[in-house]
Design a binder for these strands. Structure first.
Length: 412
DNA sequence: TCTGGGGTCCTAGGACCC
DNA sequence: TCTGGGGTCCTAGGACCC
């Protein structure tokens, strides 16, 4: 299907750092790095001034300082980013109802049916950029194209504060010399494989024999060739029409490596509480629990999962399942990171448990969740957590957070 | 004082059932 | 007693995205 859609991809420039610079004039024009508040943190986002000096996302603080000694370290503040992201999302919705949040700082808009009202996609892009700059003092890069793949590619072509339009008649010219790694979906490994087949540009990928790609990559081969030609029919899926959420998980690098079993169990309980709290807020329960451990040497790790007969979402049930997994292994090193996730999810129909003690437990859990929602994570928790004052990892939300928050889930 | 945290999707192989 | 094959569920692990 050759469609005639018009898609915008909007990418907030250095989002967390820009929000900080906007909130604090002393940071403007200076190299700033946003980091997590606790534990062995890394740089989540850095300002363009810092990037110019070689500061990159994922660097440890000391690495960032080595690249740029005058680097200003700012501990991230979730509330600022979620608030700003939500408000920006509101702006998008004044131009089209079809808005898909790819992450906290990236969205696609299908404006095909808005063009008659607002004139042109470029006009919409200008209006959006002006409003975001006016309201929040930050910039974004916008790509306009006939599909999501090309719109995302376009928004990457001019940063910061760019506006790039890829018209259907220019697609093949633009892709001819474009390195394949610029395409969303082609990572390091795929790039290496394609390079070994002497494929370096999108043009070459698009002309490659489909059978050759399919032999090498299986079913993905066909898709790769399409990507090389700039073909992408994936629709923009707005909030409320997405697929069900598939898993809920938390992981945390510990402040220091630990090998004390009681301490490990304490962190597992804490993570179980975080996972359970979120699952209950999403109103889902799951029957597969996954425990992930990374050892002190950073490189060795393992993950084990177990599937239960029943769907669960209470913190202590998750905790017990995770402990069950832990009991099947012998730890080889001190532990650096622990993670728990709940998958195999289903929407939980609201019904009161039959037995009095179960009802009491449900109410107690709901009360605890409400307090935590209001006053922040882990304001109240199970007693066994109280003696330790150590808390798991970073409080800075990941860029994968979506302003829509809870996804829509069909009741089954 | 090296190297975060949240996800999705895909594949391969084994167990088990019909 | 011997045989093939399809389907589903499960675990483990990897690639990719932000």
């Amino acid at each position: 299907m050759t469609d005639h859609r018009t898609i915008l991809h909007i990418d907030m420039n250095a989002f967390f750092a820009s929000v900080e610079q906007s909130a604090n004039p002393e940071l403007r024009g200076k190299p700033v790095a946003v980091v997590g508040g606790h534990g062995r943190t890394v740089i989540t986002t850095s300002s363009y001034e810092a990037r110019a000096k070689g500061v990159k996302t994922g660097m440890a603080i000391w690495e960032g300082k080595r690249a740029c000694p005058e680097l200003i370290i700012v501990v991230g503040d979730n509330r600022k980013y979620t608030y700003t992201s939500t408000k920006i999302n509101d702006i998008f919705h004044t131009y089209t109802p079809t808005v898909e949040a790819f992450s906290i700082d990236e969205s696609w808009l299908d404006v095909t049916h808005s063009l008659s009202i607002f004139g042109s996609a470029e006009n919409i892009a200008y209006l959006i950029k002006a409003r975001i700059r006016h309201l929040f003092g930050i910039t974004c890069s916008i790509g306009v194209a006939p599909n999501k793949l090309l719109a995302k590619l376009a928004s990457d072509m001019q940063k910061p504060d760019g506006l790039t339009v890829i018209r259907p008649e220019n697609v093949s010219r633009i892709l001819e010399q474009m390195p394949i790694k610029e395409l969303c979906g082609i990572g390091k490994k795929m790039q290496r494989h394609l390079n070994m087949m002497s494929i370096y540009t999108c043009g070459e990928l698009g002309r490659c024999d489909a059978a050759r790609l399919t032999r090498k990559f299986g079913i993905i081969g066909t898709r790769l060739k399409e990507m090389g030609r700039g073909i992408d029919n994936v629709p923009v899926v707005s909030f409320g029409k997405e697929d069900d959420v598939k898993s809920v998980g938390h992981s945390s690098t510990l402040e220091r490596d630990i090998d004390n079993p009681a301490e490990i169990r304490r962190f597992i309980l804490q993570l179980s509480e975080m996972v359970g709290n979120r699952a209950r807020r999403y109103n889902v329960s799951g029957k597969t629990i996954h425990l992930y451990v990374r050892y002190a040497d950073f490189f060795s790790s393992w993950g084990k999962q177990t599937t239960l007969k029943n769907y669960i979402n209470l913190s202590d049930e998750i905790y017990l399942a995770a402990l069950g997994i832990l009991a099947t292994v012998e730890l080889e090193q001190p532990v650096r990171l622990l993670g728990i996730s709940l998958s195999n999810l289903k929407h939980q129909a609201e019904q009161l448990p039959l037995f009095e003690d179960e009802r009491k437990k449900r109410f107690a859990t709901q009360a605890m969740d409400r307090i935590n929602d209001r006053f922040g994570r882990m304001s109240v928790t199970f007693g066994s957590l109280l003696p330790g004052k150590e808390k798991a990892g970073s409080h800075v939300i990941p860029p994968s957070w979506r302003p829509d928050g809870v996804k829509n889930i069909d009741v089954q």
